[in-house]
Write a protein that binds this DNA or RNA. Structure first.
Length: 423
DNA sequence: TGGCAGCGCAC
DNA sequence: GTGCGC
DNA sequence: GCCA
């Protein structure tokens, strides 16, 4: 985070601004600057993040269930008889968005909610104004849901939906990687009723190549990956990456980098001081070939080897991998792995972006936005908008480390393990 | 009442 | 252009 | 579903 990724310092590319030039060109002392201590990417410093114990799993598990139901409803125009909206302008999309936030807040709440007094205490914390900062994100409907779960152990709304076999089946299909609500609804309409069913008549299901992989590896891909295994996977990739391109930097991001005890997938970012065009032309395809040949990378889901507009900016390979059997002969699980290669000039931005968490990123982007800036996995630039259309994007500030990016924004640096905020 | 990010790849 | 995942 |  604070130390450069390579020993030799990088020369600033001509099209980047120095920190001085950048700060000179950005507005300061705006109203957001005075309130920046309230940001999720600043205010939770030292309080959230390292929370490893989930005191309110009895509540969040139920909210998660309802969330996945809404997620199915949100994106299933085929399921709704009247046809849902085509975009995420759909009402359910934002219910899910909002509930995710609530789950994050409860996961980080340092004590279990059992009694009405516990709940009132938390509500009071949310309503307090003046001296204490006012917390946001839980509204009246959600307080009612939490109270219902505390009293009855469940939500009537969940049972109503799950009693509908269409919803229950669609939720199961949605667990297949590459199958969203639209496909799940299509499969229901075609008469499929279970994963087993789908496997039996896979040819009739008309799945895409990715969905077929998702179905074949279904059970394994549902499992969390222990931290220890993420490290093993990283070391295999590092070994082959180093063979392909000596001196390559290999950094595993995602929840692993935030210190999580287990992860949903493995997100590996790589870079090298060499010339960008050269790095982005052959390295990743070469690495992928090596990983395939050794049997480690078993499936490729999608590539971004860069034939599009942004071919100079990054390359990706999403796939499935598996470690060799353990010494006592036990087979290992198939795991989702993302490989990404960024040129050195944007490596710090990419590392910051893919380390997350989601809400931490949103918070930083929001702050940047209010200062007339735009933050992405490629840079931090001045943005000019007319009628909400981005018409012009300035040069990015030069950053060799994540800390440089915080500095450019005028924020305090936050270590990865404290970026675990969700609220 | 409008905003909550926006993008690239498979098909 | 839609669906999907990031 | 929450918020300004």
């Amino acid at each position: 985070g604070t130390t450069p990724f390579f020993k030799t310092p990088m020369e600033k590319p001509r099209d980047f601004l120095t920190m001085e030039e950048f700060k000179m060109s950005t507005r300061k002392d705006t109203w957001v600057d005075k309130r920046k201590d309230k940001l999720a990417c600043q205010s939770n410093l030292g309080t959230y993040g390292s929370a490893t114990e989930d005191f309110n799993g009895h509540i969040t598990s139920k909210l998660n269930e309802l969330m996945s139901i809404y997620d199915a409803l949100a994106q299933a125009p085929l399921y709704n008889d009247r046809g849902g909206k085509k975009t995420k302008g759909n009402e359910y999309y934002w219910k899910v968005f909002s509930m995710k936030k609530v789950v994050g807040i409860l996961k980080n709440h340092p004590k279990p909610l059992r009694t009405q007094e516990d709940l009132k205490e938390l509500q009071a914390e949310f309503n307090r104004r003046g001296s204490g900062r006012r917390r946001k994100g839980i509204g009246k409907k959600t307080w009612n849901k939490i109270w219902e779960i505390m009293q009855t152990g469940t939500l009537q709304r969940i049972n109503e939906h799950l009693n509908d076999p269409r919803i229950a089946t669609m939720l199961n299909f949605k667990k297949i990687w590459g199958v969203g609500a639209a496909t799940a609804a299509k499969l229901w309409k075609k008469g499929f009723r279970s994963i087993h069913d789908l496997r039996k008549r896979v040819n009739e299901a008309e799945l895409t190549a990715n969905q077929k992989v998702g179905l074949a590896r279904f059970e394994d891909l549902l499992e969390r990956i222990p931290r220890r295994e993420v490290e093993e996977i990283e070391s295999v990739v590092r070994k082959h990456a180093e063979a392909e391109l000596p001196g390559v930097a290999v950094v595993t991001c995602g929840s692993y980098r935030r210190g999580a005890p287990n992860s949903g997938d493995v997100d590996i970012l790589m870079s090298h001081p060499k010339d960008d065009a050269e790095l982005l032309s052959t390295f990743l395809p070469g690495l992928v070939t090596r990983l395939r040949r050794t049997g480690f990378l078993t499936d490729e889901l999608s590539h971004g080897y860069g034939h599009g507009k942004r071919k100079h900016e990054s390359q990706t390979c999403f796939g499935v991998c598996r470690l060799p059997p353990t010494t006592d002969g036990k087979r290992r699980r198939y795991r989702r792995i993302d490989l990404k290669v960024y040129p050195r000039r944007s490596f710090a931005f990419a590392i910051l972006y893919f380390t997350g968490s989601d809400h931490f990123n949103r918070s930083m982007r929001w702050y940047a936005h209010k200062k007339g800036l735009t933050l992405s996995d490629h840079g931090l630039c001045k943005a000019t908008r007319v009628n909400r259309e981005r018409v012009w994007e300035g040069q990015s500030v030069f950053a060799e480390t994540e800390k440089d990016i915080f500095d450019a924004l005028g924020l305090d640096y936050v270590e990865p393990q404290f970026r675990n905020v969700q609220g």
